[in-house]
Design a protein around this nucleic acid. Structure first.
Lengths: 191, 191
DNA sequence: CTGAACATGTAAAAGGTTACATGATTTT
DNA sequence: AAAATCATGTAACCTTTTACATGTTCAG
């Protein structure tokens, strides 16, 4: 419960803290919010969510109004001053390097020796996954009332973040086109 | 040692198998190759590398010519027919969804409530990390003799993969510009 | 009153990273 | 012969994922 135990928090705990900082939320809310917005650059898995909320509460970084003892009903968490301080401190500390796990790309790398059809299958798989993403995650969704979203000049932060996701997706899809074009090159060579 | 134990392999083991499949390599070679090429879409950490190589050998998917008992010297692994079969099977199976951990972006999401200077710091951090990446990872590097790289029409697979990394990096850097522009918007508002 | 969606939780296992330890080879 | 780099390895820890388990509220 010491003031500086924030340093021990896992990155996921900090992300959860961030969500609570935006406005009071229940665990379920956080799950949904994480799916909508950060899922492509930061996944929060179910098994982490509730234990980490509990931990954050124990550290006094968040709290829930009614300490409802036995109840298994919805509890809405809000951030404490200590929590906000911890969040700020985290944001100011150096970030962990970006880490990615893109199995499809790895396969592509090794598929070169296989038949072109195999590469085509992979590109297809990739395209589909990014198309799904464009539709389900990278899309803006209705603006929420609580989005007291800071303006950064003419644009809000969530607009900018959404923009990033969109560009990334478009880029990935364009690359799929490029690979397919190259593959058509093979077909032409053989024709 | 059964034929179908390939299914139990971790994704990292499969990546390692892929590297060995390209041409015979030592653990150290794989480490270097992974750093150069896949590091931004698939990290291989030191602590995994050697144990996984051992496992792959036990399963008969790779082997090292001399079963040098006590020696701690360089051992070069090459893929077995079973290994190649396992690799192909893996490539043909559905890929795990893309997963990303981008702490800098997460922070950006929550930094909106802080002073603009804080956001600027984050953008700066981001820019630097991608600039480093552009210089050290996304750059082509000298073509290696062993790169019996399949031509996909007019272009090789590694060219295409490299192209992807480059586009991704450029995209990320361009986005940094956009955010900074937005921030300058704030400065102007106050001027 | 029944099913769907809401909501919270836990345990075990899998997977990955860090830090450490050690020796071999090559260069200066 | 010292230093740098090549090379392999291990153990402990940390984090995340998966699968399961359970109760609640609301709409039809």
């Amino acid at each position: 419960m010491s003031v500086d135990e924030w340093a021990d928090l896992t990155p996921t705990a900090r992300t959860i803290l961030g969500f609570v900082a935006q406005h009071p939320r229940s665990g379920y809310d956080i799950r949904e919010a994480a799916r909508r917005s950060v899922s492509y650059f930061w996944g929060v898995s179910d098994g982490q969510l509730y234990p980490q909320l509990k931990l954050l509460a124990e550290l006094g970084l968040i709290e829930s109004p009614q300490e409802d003892p036995g109840a298994r009903s919805k509890s809405v968490w809000h951030i404490t001053p200590a929590g906000r301080a911890a969040l700020t401190k985290w944001i100011r500390s150096p970030s962990a390097p970006l880490r990615m796990r893109d199995e499809n790309l790895v396969k592509m790398m090794f598929a070169a020796e296989l038949e072109p059809a195999e590469v085509l299958r992979l590109v297809d798989e990739r395209r589909k996954s990014f198309e799904w993403f464009a539709k389900n995650v990278a899309s803006p969704g209705p603006a929420q009332s609580w989005q007291a979203d800071q303006k950064l000049g003419s644009r809000t932060t969530s607009e900018l973040l959404h923009e990033y996701g969109k560009q990334h997706t478009e880029n990935a899809l364009a690359w799929c086109d490029q690979v397919e074009e190259a593959l058509r090159g093979i077909a032409n060579d053989r024709a």
